[in-house]
Design a protein around this nucleic acid. Structure first.
Lengths: 142, 142
DNA sequence: TTTATGTGTAATCATCACTATTACACTTCG
DNA sequence: CGAAGTGTAATAGTGATGATTACACATAAA
């Protein structure tokens, strides 16, 4: 049950935006840093815009900007903004309703999956884009 | 990338085995309960065998059995036995090594991802197949 | 006002993991 | 020996993903 690469790339994008002091950054420049195409970047930026994490300045000299302070953007917010699929997938077709196990397994396992997902999300809520930017500055200074 | 249903199905299988008191269960019977094909079940059983969670009795009258007590099988063990992919995927192609962010983003984000995965795994380690079987018995009794 | 420089998004494509299915070799009980 | 199982390879269909092309639209600057 993997995430897409969008979460890591979106974190990359936001961290880059956090380190440019409010100047708009072109999707093409971001694409160079991420090593992909500008359209892919704009697709992810579109999701981040919808989530209120970034905004775009159109026209010449335009680009992407943070819509809120980097200290207010948790990795959990990023995760929710760009990931579509459920962390845990259950049976593709509903199990047998007349079998003791089949009829109840989903009800029984679901609370466990919710607790696991909650624990993961809590951890992602502890780190912000500002934390990542700060760590990058420390590493880049060496 | 569709997320795998193997974890939920494997938990289903093991819970079913835990409720049959040591009698071997045919893959076809499990398949009926899960609502899939016997080959799919045997494919998952093959992984569970490799992980030492189940064993198979070959020949006529054979089937699948638990290889250890249900109280000793944590959902974390099941998860590790049947899931192939990393929980978090990172950049498909390595980011730009000459950009400050690109050169360091993976090193910076990785510890966060490890902590999130560890939190999820810790939660999955708290529940056993015996717990699931017990919950099923309670639900089925009503 | 025109033009260059951007973003936004639809459409298409190749790739990959997943589940389902068929087929067949192998094992073991009766 | 034969019936009843498991083990596994090969194949196909499906769906999400990421890459790419194409083009409409917005805006700053000349």
């Amino acid at each position: 049950m993997p995430t897409s690469t969008r979460f890591a790339v979106a974190s990359h994008i936001l961290t880059a935006l956090a380190m440019t002091d409010g100047r708009p950054v072109r999707s093409e420049d971001i694409a160079t840093s991420v090593n992909t195409s500008a359209v892919v970047i704009r697709g992810i930026l579109s999701r981040l815009n919808d989530a209120g994490l970034t905004r775009s300045q159109l026209g010449s000299g335009g680009g992407a900007l943070l819509a809120k302070s980097a200290v207010e953007i948790r990795l959990l917010d990023v995760y929710e903004a760009v990931e579509d699929t459920e962390l845990f997938a259950v049976h593709r077709t509903a199990p047998c309703t007349t079998c003791p196990v089949g009829a109840n397994i989903l009800d029984v396992i679901n609370p466990v999956l919710v607790r696991a997902r909650t624990a993961l999300e809590a951890e992602l809520g502890k780190t912000t884009i500002a934390n990542l930017a700060e760590s990058i500055r420390e590493l880049a200074a060496t």
